[in-house]
Design a protein around this nucleic acid. Structure first.
Length: 316
RNA sequence: GGUGAGGUUCCCGAGUGGCCAAAGGGAUCAGACUGUAAAUCUGACGCGCAAGCUUCGGUGGUUCGAAUCCACCCCUCACCA
């Protein structure tokens, strides 16, 4: 059974694209024409109660085309690329077992990369160690921590910029936890790649100005749909704060600052739009360096039938 | 009409005679990315490959040298009428 499930010939379709390019819409339309089950590849859609600001498919859409790996976490939790890989592989297996095709859709490129190329065997995040490192950074400065990494693991120190607290923290955390450096651990274990040969599709809006307009319009639409109320509900829980991945999500972070009284409504909207544009840009940087993905023009009037051609060729 | 404050590179905003193509921030563009990734970080950012060239509301002046000083003009804001 498990033999056949990791058969290279079993189909897996990946649809990746930046925010506001129409990924979800295309995925749903494909799912209506193919025996596909949708699996979300999105680090924000995992959160329950975060619907409007993440442009989560609405109930109607989810009824037409159910997505897996949506609403799997409370906003107080954090998730990771490794957990995603595990969960996604499970969902892929289930889908195959049901005789259907997994269609992975999303814009979290690290998750796609982790799924396709695997991850080294590393320890998971440790809140206690992270807190200790954070405190050291506050008293001694990150430069000191970078120098420490330089001693322990010159290769990683070379790669990780002294101003990059997140990666510095992670590198030192891994060493604390295992007594081994990131460099060693990477060398020790060859990452397990995806046991399938997926069709990779990249949906792109060629005209940057158009994408920017779409982002702006969509953000305003979110506001009109009650985005403030959605975040206010999270805010009023009292157990969430901007250090958490959920509240750091694009739009939520800016709305949070507004609810804290730190910015005006206009500023919140402006900065939310800016943050979305910057997110899209980073996603596009990933995609540009991605090899092996078929490009799909988001503005193609025959986008569905043209995409189906790629799928047909792949499934033969 | 009068008085005061001000007009700086896409925006905000420093700069008050040379060390200024002009601090800093934002935007934008490009890039990186192995358990936080909608995160975190890096670079570029007047024009030019370069020598160099053109900028600090406008015009003229002072000076070896002006974004910085002077004169006039245009515009903005505040207050008084």
């Amino acid at each position: 059974m498990s033999q056949s499930l990791s058969d290279q010939s079993l189909p897996v379709i990946c649809l990746m694209g930046a925010t506001a390019t129409g990924k979800t819409d295309l995925a749903v339309r494909l799912a209506e024409r193919l025996p596909c089950d949708l699996i979300s590849v999105d680090s924000a859609l995992i959160y329950r109660g975060m619907d409007i600001g993440t442009a989560k498919p609405d109930v109607e859409l989810l009824t037409r085309a159910p997505h897996r790996l949506i609403d799997i976490c409370d906003p107080i939790e954090s998730y990771s690329a490794a957990e995603f890989r595990r969960d996604a592989l499970n969902e892929i297996e289930t889908t195959h077992r049901n005789g259907r095709i997994p269609l992975l859709v999303g814009g979290t490129m690290l998750y796609f990369k982790a799924l396709l190329e695997g991850l080294a065997s590393l320890p998971k995040a440790d809140p206690v160690i992270r807190q200790q490192l954070l405190e050291q950074a506050e008293t001694e400065g990150w430069a000191v921590l970078h120098r420490r990494l330089q001693q322990l693991d010159p290769v990683s120190a070379q790669r990780i910029h002294p101003n990059d607290p997140q990666r510095l923290q992670r590198a030192l955390e891994v060493y604390e936890l295992t007594g081994k450096t990131l460099t060693q651990l990477w060398q020790e274990q060859q990452a397990a790649v995806l046991p399938f040969t997926p069709l990779q599709l990249s949906i792109e809006v060629a005209d940057r100005a158009l994408l920017h307009r779409r982002i702006e319009q969509r953000f305003h639409a979110m506001i009109e749909s009650g985005f403030e109320q959605e975040v206010r509900a999270l805010y009023q829980r009292g157990d969430l704060d901007p250090s958490m991945p959920s509240i750091r999500c694009v739009g939520y972070r800016q709305m949070w600052a507004y609810l804290e009284g730190e910015t005006s409504s206009d500023t919140m909207i402006e900065r939310g739009i800016i943050a979305t544009r910057q997110l899209a840009k980073r996603q596009m940087t990933w995609l540009r360096s991605w090899s092996g993905a078929q490009r799909i023009d988001a503005c193609d009037p025959n986008i569905v039938s043209n995409t189906l051609k790629f799928v047909d060729d792949y499934l033969i």
